[in-house]
Simulated scan of single mutants.
Amino acid sequence: MLTRKQHELVCFINDRLAQTGVSPSFEEMKEALDLKSKSGVHRLISALEERQFIRRLPNRARALEVLRMPERPEKKAPSKVVSPQLRQLPAPANDVIEIPLHGRIAAGVPIEAFEGVSTLAVPAALLGQGDHYALEVAGDSMVEAGILDGDYALVKRQEVARDGEIVVALIDDAEATLKYFRREGAMVRLDPANRAYDPQRYLPAQVRIQGKLSGILRRYH
């Protein structure tokens, strides 16, 4: 699952390596992605390393190796929609579906799950098959996955998850959080996508999967 900027960066690095055999400089990456500072490049590089798309070669300045490539999306993305999925979103449709909106979910620390129910109008082309609901994101611990405070997480209902998927996890049947799902020995680890936050570890009996992230809907004001 890559954000648009992460996707652009790994493609830029791969293309430059294919052309010259040398990794681009951080300044070149900043200019290519139209970023304001090199710190943004560092964050993207770290996120791509964590997701095992690239790695830094030891004892060599500017040396990066592309380990694998995501699928290249179409150049035109659906307007006002950000998706963390590698798969290409279908073309926008005129149909709109009302799905349940279950309050706010923490992308930092767990908060009480499903605070009331209203509805959210979502383009049908974003959802695909299955039963879906929406949660408003509160917090910043998933920003490196392109999930921001105030976004709407579109979630497919399911009770199982694979390692590396972004899920809604219900903790102790009381609190919900949006995190990467991992298995770590006999424990379940819920990973943020923000280096300022630490992973959360629980016994499997404490964690119930409430759904898998299908996409993000962002409203611009």
Results as ranks from 00 to 15, higher is better:
V82Y: 12
G211V: 13
G150R: 13
A47W: 05
R51Q: 13
E112C: 13
V168T: 07
Q200S: 11
N14P: 05
Q129K: 12
A196W: 04
R208N: 12
L2M: 13
H42T: 15
P100E: 11
D15Q: 15
L101H: 02
Q6A: 15
I105F: 11
S23T: 09
L126T: 07
I54A: 01
N94V: 12
E27N: 13
H7C: 08
L67R: 08
V167C: 00
V10E: 12
E112P: 13
Q206F: 11
L120N: 00
D34V: 11
R16P: 10
K76V: 08
L2C: 10
G185Y: 09
Q206K: 04
R51N: 06
Y180E: 08
L127R: 09
L154H: 08
N59D: 12
L57R: 15
R157N: 08
N194K: 04
M29T: 08
L217M: 09
F181W: 04
E175H: 13
E175I: 01
D149Q: 02
V167P: 11
E28H: 02
R201Q: 00
V143P: 04
L89N: 07
R72D: 13
R62I: 00
G40T: 10
S118C: 00
Q206W: 03
A153I: 06
G146F: 12
Q206S: 14
E98H: 06
I54M: 01
I166K: 07
E165A: 11
A205D: 15
L178W: 05
Y197W: 06
E65H: 14
L48I: 10
A61K: 10
L170E: 14
G215K: 00
L154I: 04
A186P: 03
D34Y: 09
A121P: 03
L148Y: 07
E175T: 07
G139S: 00
P24I: 03
A124V: 00
M187H: 07
A32D: 03
D149E: 01
V82H: 14
V168G: 08
